[in-house]
Write a protein that binds this DNA or RNA. Structure first.
Lengths: 121, 121, 121, 121
DNA sequence: GTGGTCTAGACCACC
DNA sequence: GTGGTCTAGACCACA
């Protein structure tokens, strides 16, 4: 499920996946996550790895823990939206900056994207 | 100059920098690079690190070596362009995919970029 | 085991050895290599040298790495075969070209080989 | 003319070229070579490099020097033939050994060569 | 002075 | 214990 692929540590891949599930609404505010053990089984990784991934998200406030009961998605939709925007901004800026390094101005980069979408497969 | 920043190894940062200098035309085809030792001094890193960075680029055909004489940018402008396009495509697709994970459609992602540009310029 | 012999750097000798173990089937697809440190001990060279050798093979797709877990032979048997054929072709063409420089036609070169075999076996 | 290509030092490339010219008969026994200076000009390399190449061949007895008069191909045709055979043997054995590393038996290697010749472009 | 190789030894993140 | 990165410093062949 999660490849021990080249660059990115597994726990971050997992955290990323859950984060995008939350931010894109696939995991609703207040939803209960499967237990660490179940997640570990499902993802075929060490429970410690899942634990580390969830700790990451809890630190950022996207999850909270009810002792003895499990881990839940935050109810704070404002936070979710704000995190979503932060990420979007980071991704967008990093995109523009990468393209700039290749010699594309911002406008050229955006045009490139539009054309790419047009040709797509 | 090049710091052991977050995630990316120094030698890759150096390789990236030179790569973009080549594809953006800042380093012309056939241009001679500073010697490995000089680069190392300038970038304040170990010569081996520079060596590793340049080996990366040589592998991809962006550089070639004249033994005892130095390292040079390839004369193959076709290759340079093709590599530039490859990179642009990868960057663009990875941008769209990241944004999609946040719940943005391709069009929304592009719009987001345009607005971002609007705010900044 | 691997000596700084005439011309070829140690790391390439190591890479060659492992490459031929892979293409000749001595190392099966998916097989796990000994750890970099263990190989270094066994071959009596510095771990960095082994690292460099394996990086060569990883680049060509013959190996892949699972971080924290080890290095493995690719499962892509098609690739292995294709690389084997590439090498065979290079070796054969370089043989014919070398013999041609000595004044042997292709047929003469092949005959020479056959007779050589005859004497030895 | 002679590329400062990757692996092989220029002086060896030059020595090889002259050696095969001698061994293949293109340079007859007793023939006078162009002066070191002329060769250097023609090959666009440093005279020292030519000097080193010729010294190599002189050492093996393929050339001899007449002071004030120039360098000449040896008259000893027996030596030329014997050197030719030595080289051919080395090349052939190294071919078989390389192919063996890829998993080809001697017979398979020879067959491979024959087929390659048949398909040739 | 040019690139290239190698060692020894240290440190890091990850699992 | 796994791979990966980096440094410092030495040595070599070549031109």
């Amino acid at each position: 499920m999660f490849s021990p692929d080249n660059n990115s540590p597994i726990y971050l891949q997992i955290a990323e996946k859950i984060k995008s599930d939350i931010v894109s609404g696939e995991l609703s505010p207040g939803a209960r996550l499967p237990s660490v053990r179940d997640l570990a089984l499902k993802l075929k990784v060490n429970p410690n790895t899942v634990q580390k991934a969830l700790a990451e998200l809890e630190m950022r406030g996207l999850l909270f823990t009810e002792r003895t009961n499990g881990k839940f998605v935050t109810h704070d939709t404002g936070l979710i939206i704000s995190i979503k925007n932060d990420y979007a901004k980071n991704i967008a800026e990093s995109f523009l900056s990468s393209m700039e390094k290749l010699g594309f101005s911002n406008d050229e980069a955006i045009n490139y994207l539009s054309n790419l979408g047009g040709e797509k497969n």
